[in-house]
Design a protein around this nucleic acid. Structure first.
Lengths: 202, 202
DNA sequence: GGAGTTTATAGAACGTGTTCTAATTCGGGC
DNA sequence: GCCCGAATTAGAACACGTTCTATAAACTCC
């Protein structure tokens, strides 16, 4: 292996990018990924196309993200962070955990459904990820979980709340995938999520 | 497209295979798939390797299963059917839905965990499936759902029971994937399933 | 500001899923 | 038995993810 392995890992994590130029490159890559995914979904995110659009060489793309799955899951994390920030700037209505979670869920779901191709690309990458992308997948899973625990209560979540959040996350993702693959309509998804949250929180 | 399209679809569905030779071929293909998957997981299920081992030409393989994902999801359906049959031949212990579902869940989960590579191959194919494999995916989803509704009660399941079964299925799959990608241990999986079923059925 | 190291580039090369082609074999109706 | 369309075969060909190579540019430390 190359002696710069640990350095590369830092690049992948998106933290401590040595130079501004590198942060810049990384951003261009993620932007290109999101643009291509928005236009044509998973299949349209072709590594050569991403590299072209981000104006980096193919080899450079691979230095920043060791595979297509890493790239897409990292981009998903970026998107979820954005959504979370936006959510943080609003006050979530509802006076029970049930109502608040449902509000958050509905909002994010509708947000994703506004961009079906992007959603398709990201969810497929996420669920297809193998062990090598474990860190990135864990990060996204954590973002999802904390999104729901925050909606449940302002306090530090209990273990039970975390478990509930995880279950909701699982169901959410699975329904998103069903919608993306046209096995469920948006209405189906909304109904099933409502039912699930009711079973768990009411 | 070829004029034999509808005939091919019938082949894919695995029903009404015109000749015994064709049923035989199809079985060889599925067997080869399962053998290769058991040995080396998703990556080891290479279409040329499957064709070789099943003693059919590559083109024939594609005539029976239009993609690697179709092939693996169909094989998963075959495996689940076997598991279901086996389950039908035992009486499920437990005098509450909670206990019986947990029993079934534990048993299938342990069964799958005994063959990690096969499980990896099938779950990854299942979650990666795109719209074109919708029928196969629905079939597997239905098998999973009915596996759990049967454990819940001997009667025709209510809508609520079906919904619960679906949630359990979602959580089950997601945990299986986490286990397969080494983001969760077998114990984690067992605990989370227990907790989920408790939240839903107790 | 130069030597040495790391990073980036262009592009070839490789592996595997998928498609295509041409030739052969099979199965059912005459 | 013979003909015809469908099924099968062997293998080439193609697409895209990934890896590799050679060269150039950028950074680091003196």
């Amino acid at each position: 292996m190359s002696p710069s392995k640990s350095r590369t890992d830092a690049l992948m994590a998106g933290e401590e990018l040595s130079s501004a130029a590198q942060r810049e490159r990384r951003k261009r890559i993620v932007d290109a990924t999101i643009a291509l995914a928005s236009k044509g979904g998973f299949d349209a995110v072709q590594m050569r196309a991403v590299a072209d659009r981000a104006d980096v060489a193919l080899g450079t793309l691979y230095r920043y993200f060791p595979s297509k799955v890493h790239l897409l899951v990292s981009s998903l994390a970026v998107e979820l962070e954005r959504a979370q920030e936006k959510m943080d700037r609003t006050t979530v209505p509802g006076d029970s955990a049930y109502e608040r979670v449902l509000f958050v869920l509905g909002r994010i779901t509708r947000g994703l459904q506004r961009n079906p191709h992007l959603t398709e690309a990201m969810t497929r990458a996420f669920t297809f990820a193998d062990a090598s992308a474990g860190a990135e997948v864990d990060r996204v899973a954590w973002l999802m979980e904390s999104m729901f625990t925050r909606a449940m209560s302002a306090e530090e979540p209990t273990d039970e709340q975390k478990a509930i959040a995880r279950v909701i996350g699982d169901v959410w993702l699975s329904n998103l995938v069903a919608w993306v693959t046209r096995r469920a309509t948006a209405t189906d998804v909304a109904n099933r999520l409502e039912l699930t949250v009711r079973l768990l929180l009411k």
